[in-house]
C-alpha cells in the first residue's frame, strides 16, 4: 500500500517547505531527501528479479527509514548538485555518474508512483526548441525565432524582423568566486552581430510589442494566472527589483487553457510555469489581448507569486490524488 510522499530537494529549498506544510496539514507522511547527501547520511538498497519484478528496497536518511515500494508520490523539486567534495577529480566524476545512474535512476523508476514532475520529462521539456515546436502545433502563437550559429542567417533574420531580441538558452555560466551575472533578454541590432556567433548556438526572436507579461502556472487541473507589469516597462521582468513587480489576476482564455493542458500532456508533465507576452489589440473598438507563448519552465519557481499558498495546496492535492485515503 502506498503511504509516503517523497520530496526530492535541497535542504535550503523554501518552496518545498510550502508544499510539505500543506502535506502535513493533510496528515500525509513525508520523507524529504536530497540525493546529493548519498553516503552515510543517505543509504539505499534496492532489489529486483524475475520473481520480484518491481523494485523493492529501502531509503534511509537520519530522520526517515522508508520502503521504496511504499512511495505513492514523488515531488521532484530542486535537489542539490552532487558533491563528493572529498574526492579527487576523476574519482569524483566516477562517483557523480554512478550516483546519477544508480540512485538518480532508481528514484526516477519507483513502481506505481506519481511524479510531479518526472525528472526525465522535465529534461525533455526543458529544451526551448522543443517547447516552441509543441506550442505551434497546439495552435499557440509564438514569436518568429531563429536558432543558429550562422552569422549570415542571423543577420538576415534580424534585418527582416527588427526589433529583435537575443535570449540565452540556459543563462549565464556558474561563477565560483562570490560573483553573479545574468544574460537578460535584450534587444539587439545588426551592428551588434559578429563572427563569434559561429562558436555556439544562439537564439533570436522577433520582439513582441508587449504591454505586460502573463505567468500561467498549471498544477494538475488547476490554473493560476497573473499579469505581471514592471514600473519601468522592462523587456525582461526578471532584471529588476522583484519587490516592485505588479501582479494582477488575469483571465486565461479557454482555448489557451486547453492548449496548455495538451502541452503538459504531450511532455507527460503535471505542472508547468508558462510565460506569455500580452499585446493590446483593438478590433473595431473591441479591446482584447493577444497571447504569445514565450516558454514553459517544467520545474519553474512559483513561491514568489501572490497565489503561492493556494499553489502549495494544489501541489499537495495533486500529489495525493487517487491513492491517499
Amino acid at each position: 500500500m502506498p503511504q509516503i510522499v517523497l520530496v526530492i530537494t535541497s535542504a535550503e529549498d523554501v518552496t518545498a517547505n510550502l508544499v510539505i506544510e500543506a502535506l502535513n496539514e493533510r496528515q500525509a507522511y513525508v520523507a524529504r531527501v536530497d540525493p546529493a547527501d548519498v553516503g552515510p547520511e543517505l543509504m539505499f538498497s534496492a532489489y529486483i528479479s524475475s520473481h520480484r519484478p518491481e523494485w523493492i528496497g529501502r531509503l534511509r536518511s537520519p530522520s526517515r527509514d522508508i520502503a521504496l515500494e511504499d512511495v505513492g508520490a514523488v515531488y521532484y523539486r530542486r535537489p542539490s548538485p552532487w558533491r563528493f567534495e572529498s574526492l579527487e577529480k576523476s574519482a569524483r566524476d566516477f562517483a557523480v555518474t554512478e550516483a546519477r545512474h544508480g540512485l538518480g535512476g532508481l528514484l526516477a523508476s519507483l513502481p506505481n508512483c506519481r511524479y510531479v514532475n518526472h525528472p526525465a520529462n522535465i529534461g525533455r521539456a526543458d529544451f526551448k526548441v522543443a517547447q516552441l515546436q509543441v506550442a505551434t502545433r497546439l495552435g499557440l502563437r509564438v514569436p518568429a525565432t531563429v536558432v543558429s550559429n550562422d552569422l549570415d542567417a542571423i543577420r538576415k533574420f534580424v534585418v527582416d524582423h527588427e526589433p529583435v531580441i537575443y535570449k540565452s538558452f540556459r543563462g549565464a555560466p556558474r561563477a565560483t568566486d562570490g560573483h553573479v551575472a545574468a544574460i537578460w533578454t535584450q534587444r539587439i541590432t545588426p551592428q551588434d552581430l559578429d563572427d563569434s556567433l559561429s562558436i555556439t548556438a544562439h537564439l533570436f526572436q522577433e520582439e513582441v510589442r508587449k504591454t505586460a507579461d502573463a505567468r500561467v502556472t498549471v498544477i494538475g487541473r488547476t490554473v493560476f494566472a497573473s499579469r505581471i507589469t514592471t514600473p519601468d516597462g522592462a523587456l525582461d521582468w526578471r532584471s529588476g527589483d522583484w519587490g516592485e513587480l505588479v501582479h494582477d489576476q488575469i483571465y486565461v482564455p479557454e482555448p489557451i487553457k486547453k492548449a496548455l493542458r495538451a502541452y503538459l500532456d504531450h511532455f507527460g508533465l503535471v505542472f508547468g510555469c508558462f510565460d506569455f507576452a500580452l499585446e493590446a489589440s483593438d478590433n473595431g473598438g473591441q479591446k482584447s489581448e493577444i497571447w504569445t507563448f514565450i516558454e514553459c519552465n517544467p520545474n519553474g519557481q512559483w513561491g514568489w507569486l501572490p497565489d503561492s499558498n493556494a499553489m502549495a495546496d494544489a501541489f499537495a492535492d495533486v500529489l495525493l490524488e487517487g491513492w491517499w485515503p
Binding site: 535541497s10 535550503e12 518552496t15 542539490s80 548538485p81 557523480v96 540556459r170 543563462g171 556558474r174 519553474g300
Partner: peptide
C-alpha cells in the same frame, strides 16, 4: 530564496546552483 538561490538541480540533480535572479536552471 525562490528566485535567487534555490536553483540547484537539473533534471538529474547535476545542475548548477549559481546564484542568479533567473528562474531557469543552468
Amino acid at each position: 530564496v525562490t528566485v535567487t538561490v534555490s536553483r540547484g538541480g537539473g533534471g538529474d540533480g547535476s545542475g548548477g546552483a549559481a546564484q542568479v535572479a533567473d528562474d531557469s536552471e543552468n
